[in-house]
């Protein structure tokens, strides 16, 4: 339907960083790596180009950067001596972008997270499910909605999203 377009999302380099997110050195290293502050719980700090950092867990961030290899090296240098794990995960996931006013309604068919306007908006990320697989959803601005799933289930996720976008959807309560 015309209300929502589902398209592959070209993902930048991605780096998982696990560390004590409250540590000042971590904050500095993240800022140096992607120009953003460590986001609060469920937060997404992203620039207009889609680079930045997503909060994934109390001790885990996902950095979206132009060059993952350089970022891993930078983080490892900056955090030497501090317990941490930094790894290039650029190939582990596949992304989708939902464009159009029905994006939230399409996702309400597939994910148990509250993605209604009162429950979710720009600057936030949700790790949740897309039917039977894990996904992470975020918004860089008022629209569109971006999400990632693990690489091996990308075809399944594409089928889900196309199917959910094909019929008229019920908008979440405002």
């Amino acid at each position: 339907m015309a209300e929502v377009t589902v398209a592959p999302l070209t993902l930048p380099g991605m780096v998982t960083l696990k560390a004590d997110l409250a540590d000042a050195r971590v904050a500095a290293a993240v800022r140096a790596a992607c120009g953003q502050d460590v986001p609060a719980r469920l937060g997404a700090s992203l620039d207009a180009g889609g680079h930045g950092v997503l909060w994934m867990a109390p001790d885990e961030l996902l950095l979206l950067v132009p060059d993952a290899t350089a970022t891993v090296a930078g983080l490892q240098g900056a955090l030497a001596g501090l317990p941490h794990l930094a790894a290039d995960v650029s190939d582990a996931r596949m992304g989708f972008r939902l464009t159009g006013p029905g994006a939230r309604a399409v996702l309400a068919r597939l994910t148990p997270a509250d993605l209604s306007a009162p429950g979710f908006g720009p600057g936030q990320v949700r790790r949740t499910r897309l039917a039977q697989v894990a996904c992470a959803v975020w918004m860089t601005g008022p629209a569109p909605v971006d999400l990632v799933v693990m690489r091996s289930v990308a075809a399944y996720a594409a089928g889900l999203l196309q199917g959910a976008a094909a019929a008229e959807a019920v908008a979440p309560l405002g």
Binding site: A131, Q132, R151, S152, V153, A155, G159
Partner: peptide, 15 residues
């Protein structure tokens, strides 16, 4: 719900 046919269960694909 949607879990039927090709979407009955996720199939994991290697590259």
């Amino acid at each position: 719900g949607e879990a039927r046919g090709d979407l009955f269960q996720p199939v994991r694909a290697t590259p």
